[in-house]
Amino acid sequence: MIKRLVVLLLLAGIGAIFMSLLLGYTPDNELNLTARYYAEHTAQDIGAANIVTAIIVTYRGLDTLGEVTVLFLTAAIVGLVLAQGRQQNSQRSQRKLPESGELLQTGSLLLTPLILLLGVYVFVNGHLTPGGGFQGGAILASAILLMLLTDPMRHFSHRLISVLESISGLIFITIGVLGIIYAGGFLDNRILPTGSLGQLFSAGVIPIIYSFIGLKVGAEFSSMLVNLSETEGS
C-alpha cells in the first residue's frame, strides 16, 4: 500500500513537470535556424524531395550509421542470448503443433509477395515519398512474421540472413568512403549526379544507400523474429 502511494507521488511529481512544460509551450510560427537551412538548401545541395530523408541519409548520415550499428548489435545480442538456450532443448523442439487454419495459410500465400513488394517500393522511393529504409525494412520483416505465424516451425536460413545483412552494411560503408574520395566527405551523396527533383533516379546515391539500409534493417528484424520464434519449441 505504502509502495503504491510512493509510486503515485512520484507520478504526480513527473506530471507536474510535464504540466509546466505543456503550459510554457508556445508553438513556433517560423522554422528555426537549422530547419530553415535544411528547407532552403536540400533541393539544390542534395536533390531529395523528402527533406527528412535528406537529413537522415546525408546531413546526419553518420548518426544513421550509428543507428544501424545499434540495431545490428541488438540483433546479434538477441541471437547470442537465445542461441545458448536452444542447444540444450533441441531434442524437445520437435513438439507437434496443430496446423494453422485454412484462412491463415491461403492468406499468407497471397499476401507475402505483396508485402515484400510494398517493402521494396517503400525503401526504393524513400527520397520521394514518406518512407525509407527503416520503414521498408520493417515491412519486409512483417512478411517474415506472417510466414512464421502460418508455420511456427518453418526454418529460415540464418546464414542467408547474415550474409544479406553483412553485404548491405559493407556496401553502405563503401559508398560512404567513396564519398570522401569523389565528393565532399563521408556519406556525401553527390558521387552520382543529383538529377532533377522528384525523379526516381535523383538525389545522388540516396536511393542506393537507403535500399541497402532497407535490406539490412529487414534482415536484422527478421533475424530477431526468427530467433525469438525458434525458442517456441523449447
Binding site: 513556433d28 522554422l31 528555426n32 537549422t34 530547419a35 535544411y38 528547407a39 527533406i51 527528412v52 537529413i55 537522415i56 546526419r60 548518426d63 544513421t64 543507428e67 545499434v70 540495431l71 541488438t74 540483433a75 545480442i77 538477441v78 542470448v81 537465445l82 525509407g132 527503416f134 520493417a138 534493417v217 528484424f221 530477431m224 530467433n227 525469438l228
Partner: peptide, 26 residues
C-alpha cells in the same frame, strides 16, 4: 513545411525502441 528535424529524430527513436524491446524480450 513543418519542422523536419523532430521527425528525423523520432524515426531514429522508433527504430532504437524496437531494438530495446527485442533485447528486453530476449
Amino acid at each position: 513545411i513543418i519542422d523536419p528535424i523532430p521527425q528525423a529524430l523520432v524515426l531514429t527513436a522508433i527504430v532504437i525502441g524496437v531494438g530495446v524491446t527485442a533485447l528486453m524480450l530476449a
